[in-house]
Design a protein around this nucleic acid. Structure first.
Lengths: 153, 153
DNA sequence: TCTATTTCAGACTATTTCAGTCGTACTCTA
DNA sequence: TAGAGTACGACTGAAATAGTCTGAAATAGA
């Protein structure tokens, strides 16, 4: 279809949680998992992937856990999603190694790549900070403005 | 992940093909399928779905086939994709019936919905006509401009 | 009216992907 | 050094997807 994987969802939730608890101690995977009613095993897995991409920092040992590696405003949703699910590719053709068996015939590839970039742009624009600020007018208006632009012509 | 299904791909390819052969006779499913090296059974299935949503018109009988129901410029990629894969929903939470079992806790839903709308906007902007015009400067520039807008801030 | 061609519809199978679990090893801190 | 935590890969079951098959109805032309 055209959906985020659940893991990516969880990743975004976790990032938001960490953003809201920046000042405090590191949050353990199970702590976050409990807050949202998700299996702690699974949340741990998601956080591991985020840690591998240096989006969060892991702190071992007792009273350990995870913390954001950067400021929430400097982490985009796109980064989180790609960290977990790999690169965002709208079609399988789009990738560089031509696994599209109709390379020359599949004439739709090139324009779709452009669409893909647009979507990357949208996802890249949204930051964790925007997700976590509860419903501050500024960001919502900004996003809304963008919608209209995209729709306008 | 975050990909179009192959069927949606095929759908777009078929629509483009039909757009390029508008003036001529109706194209049969197997004719299109052969052109792109896809199983004709599968292509038929895809076209059936498109016909059900009134994006193409089917003509039964010998020398029958499919034709576009509207002008290529009036059909968006979004229409084609939703016709085949159903509504585009970035998260499973986003749907109206709350199948997100953490409705009140999953605080990420609301901002993601906004992102979803942006993506719908992008897909709704791209028309079959734009896909089929080989590489006419105008449309490319327009799309490029949109990318930059989305990326800029 | 007969036949060939083509769409239509839905059931069916196979394959791939995804979600989630488990087990074990490693790393800190108290 | 014990307990709390991360790290990582293998594994399983379920669900979505891709693709096939069959039998029917519609149409054009001989």
């Amino acid at each position: 279809m055209f959906k985020l994987s659940k893991k990516a969802d969880y990743g975004l939730i976790a990032m938001k949680h960490l953003a809201n608890h920046r000042q405090q101690h590191a949050c353990s995977a199970s702590e976050i998992a409990e807050d949202y009613g998700i299996s702690s095993m699974l949340m741990a897995k998601v956080l591991q992937k985020l840690a591998k991409q240096n989006l969060v920092v892991a702190k071992h040992g007792s009273s350990g856990g995870y913390q954001l590696a950067k400021e929430p405003a400097k982490i985009s949703a796109l980064e989180v999603i790609t960290a977990i699910d790999g690169p965002v590719l709208i079609t399988s053709c789009v990738t560089s190694h031509g696994n599209c068996d109709a390379t020359d015939r599949c004439s739709i590839k090139e324009p779709l790549q452009r669409v893909n970039e647009s979507i990357l742009g949208v996802l890249g624009t949204v930051t964790i900070a925007q997700l976590s600020e509860e419903r501050q007018e500024a960001s919502l208006v900004e996003l809304k403005g963008m919608d209209q632009l995209a729709l306008s012509r």
